[in-house]
Amino acid sequence: MTDRTELLLAEARTQAMREVFPPGTDQVRRTVRRRQGIAAGLGVVLAIAAITSGIALVNDRHPATNAPPAAPSSGPSENLDVFPTPDPTAEARISAADDALGDPDKQPWVVATSGVVTADYENAAMDLAADDYQFYLYCVGEGTVDIVLKDGQYGDKKMAAGTATCSDNPEPAILPFTQPAANRSRVFLSGDARAAEKASFSFKIVRTSEIVTEASQESRTNATAAAGLLDGSGLPEPAKMTTEQDKTADVTKPAGNYRVLVSCYGPGKVSFLVRTGKTLRDGTVATNGPTEGTITHECTGEGQFSSFASVTLAAGSGFSITAQADSAARNKAGWAYLVIPG
């Protein structure tokens, strides 16, 4: 690890340590006493039940005093785990809320959590860098949840607010917000009477610049149609491209003369830029080479295709084909390309 990275980790650790204020061992003792009281009460109930039903209960909660200590368990013992166990419905809702967050490998998030909706939930301790973000809240169950995001650990600097509707297949409530400076942020969630203590929620905060849009079915279908415009006997299969974001395709070929064919299909306009450039060590093509041509297609339901003039490719070079969709075409139109000798 670089010295600088190690230093940053060490500083983060030191700074965070200064902000830790333990609730204290008195709090620990109160919590444990309260739970033991509940557990003892449960024991009396179970004992009575056992006596009345004639079933003997084996109490293993008090091992022999002289027994050697057991090996440390790999997990917490459940003897005193008297937190309420969610019923199957609540359990399913929590799992569904977790699942709704999606795969962080596909859509990275800055922070995410989940839990049971309450009338007055507050998460007061998330550190965010200055940037633009989107807040996604999923609520599984019934009712609604009001959302307020505030900047800073204290004060009333509201960054965003809205309401999420709970359902068994929730659509997220999405709130864009800007974190003006690196700071702590707060999330307030207030469930209504139908949601509180019954519904489950999950939320994630995603950097706007890292939002990954899935290609729509319409764009995929139109990409296939666009590829159909370039089909020809003896030609290789065209590459199909969707328009959920601007894309650059790299094509490496041996030195020679080539024609680049592009097509699009569907609504809106797509602009194409074809460049040649050096093939880099990672297999991609440099985008700072000469521009070989540009063209903008009105895609339409009939589709449109173009052939760029023959381009001479030097050894160790390739093509980069960039397509930019306008708002009408975005994630609706599809495009395709083909590079053939000629």
């Binding site: 204020f21 309420p84 700071n183």
Partner: peptide, 22 residues
């Protein structure tokens, strides 16, 4: 995931020491 409704910190938050942001 289930501790949210039970968080002891949320019950103690009002007495938390004020600290600077990160």
């Amino acid at each position: 995931r289930t501790r949210t409704a039970l968080s002891f910190l949320s019950r103690q938050r009002r007495t938390e020491v004020r600290i600077e942001g990160p």
